[in-house]
């Protein structure tokens, strides 16, 4: 019964794709790939800034998925399932690499925030553009796991429960990570120019 409702439910096209894929529909499988490869790549690339490795991991992930399709169950969220699998795969690959030093708890990645995204354009009229840009720069300097939680929550919009499962932590630890990152971000506002100080004083 559950499957039937999923198939006929236009609100959940992914559920239908997933069901078709599990019965061996390659077209559905490719659609799942094409729909998710961008966000998976983005997530993977921010775990480890190595395009080749991320590509390998995603390829392996999808090849594994296809081969084990008979054993897969109904999933409430394909995206969540893929993120969790990709993270595991990447961490397995990384942990095997002893000389790997780029990623660690206090990793500072120097990515430049993308300032012209939809969301930032959207609110530019309220003169928050600069605030957000500063905040993004501070975020980029957060320890890797704190930044990962922020991405998973605000960029990829996973729930607390899903984030906990993806990152293999309990929910309280995820909350703690978020709290800690907010605290750090707050500290980082101390150094902002006077003109903006007033605003932040108001908000924080």
């Amino acid at each position: 019964m559950k499957k039937d409702t999923n198939i006929s439910n236009p609100e959940h096209p992914y559920d239908e794709l997933w069901t078709r894929f599990r019965t061996g529909d390659e077209v559905a499988f490719e659609e799942i790939y094409q729909t998710h490869v961008g966000i998976l790549y983005n997530y993977g690339f921010h775990i480890v800034a190595n395009a080749w490795l991320v590509q390998e991991a995603i390829q392996d992930l999808f090849a594994d998925l296809w081969r084990s399709r008979h054993a897969l169950s109904d999933t409430t969220s394909v995206k969540y399932y893929l993120f969790r699998s990709l993270r595991r795969k990447l961490h397995r690959m990384i942990s095997a690499e002893q000389s790997y030093t780029e990623i660690c708890e206090d990793d500072k990645s120097y990515e430049m925030p993308q300032t012209n995204s939809f969301e930032t354009d959207h609110i530019a009229e309220e003169n928050q553009f600069e605030q957000i840009r500063k905040l993004q720069i501070s975020m980029a300097g957060l320890p890797a796991r704190q930044l990962e939680v922020i991405r998973l929550r605000f960029f990829d919009e996973f729930s607390l429960e899903e984030i906990a499962s993806i990152m293999q932590m309990n929910e309280q630890s995820v909350r703690n990570l978020i709290q800690r990152s907010i605290r750090k971000l707050r500290q980082s506002f101390v150094g902002i120019p006077i003109t903006f100080f007033f605003l932040f004083h108001f908000f924080f």
């Binding site: 790549y41 993004q136 929550r153």
Partner: peptide
């Protein structure tokens, strides 16, 4: 407001796709 700014900043972080 604080939460809103964090969300907007977090969701506008750099995006890399192939």
């Amino acid at each position: 407001e604080k939460a809103r700014i964090v969300i907007l900043a977090g969701s506008g972080l750099s995006y890399t796709e192939p």
